[in-house]
Design a protein around this nucleic acid. Sequence first.
DNA 1: CAGCATCCCGGCAGATACTG
DNA 2: CAGTATCTGCCGGGATGCTG
Lengths: 122, 122
Amino acid sequence: MDEIPGQTYLADCRARAAFDLLGNTWSPVVLWALRDAPRRPGALRTRIGGISAKVLTETLRRLEHNGLVERCSYPESPPRVEYALTPLGRTLLPALETLGVWGSRHGDAVLAAQDRAEESPR
Amino acid sequence: MDEIPGQTYLADCRARAAFDLLGNTWSPVVLWALRDAPRRPGALRTRIGGISAKVLTETLRRLEHNGLVERCSYPESPPRVEYALTPLGRTLLPALETLGVWGSRHGDAVLAAQDRAEESPR
DNA sequence: CAGCATCCCGGCAGATACTG
DNA sequence: CAGTATCTGCCGGGATGCTG
C-alpha cells in the first residue's frame, strides 16, 4: 500500500479501486453469494433475499463490466444462464471476508454509536 | 432492517455493516488520512486533495455519527478543531489496508476489463 | 479557517408491467 | 424464468456564497 510515494491515501489512487467496485449496495452481497459456485439468477435471488430482479441484473452487469463476474449461457432446453466469479473476482474474496468479519464483530458497536448520536442533545 | 434467519452472506446481516459505512466515496479516504494522527479539517483537505469543504464536513459528520471518528474542539486562540479516529474506527484500519492493497495490485486488471467491455460491442 | 445554506446533477435502488 | 422498459424517490457529491 505504501508503494506509491507520499500519495497512497489520497483521492486519486488505485488503492481506491476496491471501494469504487464495492460501493454499490448489492455488489458485495452478490459477489459473496457467488463465492462457492456459479449460480443462476433465480437461485441468487432466493439465496440473497430482498433484491429485486431488476437490481440483481443491474448489479451483475456492473460486476461483469468490471471483470469480476462472468455470464455463461447454455443453449440447452430449457435455456440456462449462470453467473460465475472470474479469477479476478475470486481474488477479492479474502478482502470481502475481512470486512464481513469486521461487521460481525463490531456491527453492534456501530449501532450503539448511532443510537447514542441520535438520542443525545438534538 | 429486517432480520432474516440464515447464513452470513444474505442481504440483511451485520456482516454488511462495513460496506454501509464505507460505501460513500470519501469515507475510506478520510479514515485513511486520519490513520496516523488527529488532523484539522484544513490539513485533511490538503492531504487528501480533490475534496470540497462541504463534502469533507459531511463525511466527517457521518463518520462521527457512526462512532468511527471523534470531533475535538480546543478553546484556544485561535480556536482549533481536530478530528481523530475512535478506538472503534481504529479497528477498521486493517480492513482498509487489505482493500487498498487489493486495489494497488488488481486495479490495472479492472481498468483493462472495463476497456475491454467498452470497446467490444461498440 | 470552520461550517452552514442553496441549488443542481447524476446514479442507485425500488416498484410495476411487459416481452421472449 | 431471464431480461427489459418506465417511472419515481432518494442521497451523495460538486459549485458557490455567506457567517462567525
